[in-house]
Amino acid sequence: MSVERPVHPVSIVMIEDDEGHARLIERNIRRAGVNNEIVPFQDGTSALSYLLGPDGSGEASARRHLLILLDLNLPDMTGLDILEKVKANPHTRRSPVVVLTTTDDSREIQRCYDLGANVYITKPVNYEGFANAIRQLGLFFSVMEVPQNP
């Protein structure tokens, strides 16, 4: 999409504590032909500080085009905390959030959608499924419109 719409460079914020998973996700997104910048974070605190700014106001994300890939199991907080803060902040709430996690607990899934998650994907354990899912996600990203944050 960066090719078609260079005016709005969309950044993919990837919050994933497992380095291996992060690398595998990145590789497969690239394989789908997505060349956007990927900003990786391994813990919730640093991710929130990037998204909402050090002051937590969210000003930092104003006018950014962000797409957030979120894992729920983080060392310092759960992904739900981040989801809640992102969707409650006027500057970040328009950013699409894709929850990508190992949990397939139905209550957890409902919770995420209730909090405003846009997509919930369970990481398939077998690698073929995993790689396939990420590649399709990449294809989905390439046709997706990401609005600018207010």
Partner: peptide, 9 residues
């Protein structure tokens, strides 16, 4: 499960 995804991947 998490490390297993890596091993497999």
């Amino acid at each position: 499960r998490a490390p297993l995804v890596n091993v497999m991947g």
